[in-house]
């Protein structure tokens, strides 16, 4: 897919995020919307995958470490054909496979996440296995910026460079907000790029809403080094009244707000 087509997919993901979280009456639209363009590029450009064969051993894998962005992941998986788009109506509902945070019941979900800080370690394990089996597949991980406050992230960061895992790319969704406010106020994580470099990663900083920039960064390879893409994003991106509002971290739009959101997301 070219950048324009991917942008359309990103818009479709954003619409699904708003509709499914409002339909569920709960969920995390803010961090889902900030990651929408990243996930659109991953699923419609970068990943080598077979939606009709989720267990294909040679597939690239994506671990969504910021599991609360599940609505965006589910939207991407549905748009990619892992399951019907109509399933998105079941988000967070009893007896449905789309759990509040990613679980293995959903085709295409690669790891259980939701407790922050754990996904990158799982991705590191997958990258070790790929090296061990001499498979050429690549492991991608999307983490939140608030999530970088978890100590386990840095344990995993250390391990990835120690084992020279050049088959792993992490995207940090740097939207600058977390539940209690701006990351700079709650718990500063800057200088973030310097931290990843100090842990032995190759760092690329991009605009996380520029499809061409995301495409370019995800295509980058660095011999012997894991790659961390720091994607500067806007929480709630694409929906004016949600943008940069911490309150929409874990609260969906009302029915009335949803109509406005869908009008904006054309």
């Amino acid at each position: 897919m070219d950048a324009d087509q991917i942008a359309k997919k990103a818009t479709a993901i954003r619409r699904h995020v708003c509709e499914s979280t409002t339909g569920a009456g709960s969920g995390h639209p803010g961090g889902s919307l900030s990651a929408a363009d990243i996930l659109a590029v991953l699923y419609f450009h970068t990943l080598k995958h077979r939606p009709k064969e989720p267990g294909w051993p040679e597939r690239d894998r994506l671990v969504l470490s910021k599991g609360h962005a599940a609505p965006a992941l589910y939207a991407a998986l549905a748009e990619a054909g892992y399951f019907p788009v109509s399933d998105l109506k079941g988000l967070r509902k009893l007896g449905h496979h789309l759990q509040g945070h990613p679980a293995m019941d959903t085709p295409g979900v690669e790891a259980c996440t939701g407790s922050l800080g754990q996904g990158l370690s799982v991705a590191v394990g997958m990258a070790l296995a790929a090296k061990l089996d001499k498979r050429g597949n690549r492991i991608y991980c999307v983490a939140g910026d608030g999530e970088c406050q978890e100590g386990q992230i840095w344990e995993a960061a250390m391990a990835a460079s120690h084992y020279a895992l050049d088959n792993i790319t992490l995207v940090v969704d740097r939207n600058g907000l977390q539940i209690d406010g701006f990351t700079k106020d709650v718990m500063s994580i800057e200088p973030l790029a310097a931290k990843w470099r100090a842990f032995g990663w190759h760092v690329i900083k991009i605009n996380g809403h520029s499809i061409p920039e995301i495409m370019g960064a995800l295509a980058h390879r660095e011999k012997g080094k894991p790659i961390a893409i720091i994607a500067n994003t806007v929480k709630g991106s694409g929906v004016s009244f949600m943008e940069n509002v911490a309150g929409f971290h874990g609260k969906p739009a009302s029915q009335q707000q949803l109509e406005q959101a869908l009008e904006e997301l054309q």
Binding site: A111, G117, Q118, S121, V124, M126, A129
Partner: peptide, 15 residues
Amino acid sequence: ANMIGMAAGLALSGK
């Protein structure tokens, strides 16, 4: 903590 996560990732890859 990272050890357990890595073990999970290895197991998810068939180990």
